[in-house]
Amino acid sequence: MNKLHIEGSKSTPTVILDAEKNNLFLQGQSYPENAFKFYEPIFQWVDEYLEKLTAEVLVQIDFNLPYINTSSSKCIMMLLEKLDKAYASGKKLTLNWYYNEDNESELECAEEFKEDLTFPFNITSRENK
């Protein structure tokens, strides 16, 4: 399965989805003009990857998203739901959500994203990364 690498920009995060390393990585601010258009290939890649994922493989997910606009938030939630469903179906995965200790809002948002999810979701300070 091909690696998905999207270079980050001022308004979109860097995306590296690596099936070989079983690593999903998103870093940067997310406020694209069309959020669904930006996240659609990510959804497709993740769906395909999770479909093929075997139960013994541990997937490492790292999200470092200092600012996410409303549409992107919906897309991230959709992504998290996919991961949660996979976990519920017996796939192993763990997510690190990085936040800035100096920005109260980032922790608040991380906790909001985490709510209702069942898979391991670690909220970690960027300082400790």
């Binding site: 600012y67 409303t70 938030s73 809002s105 608040e108 909001e112």
Partner: peptide, 10 residues
């Protein structure tokens, strides 16, 4: 509701 919380906080 979640998005409202996130959006307001940000």
């Amino acid at each position: 509701r979640k998005i409202f919380v996130i959006s307001d906080s940000q």
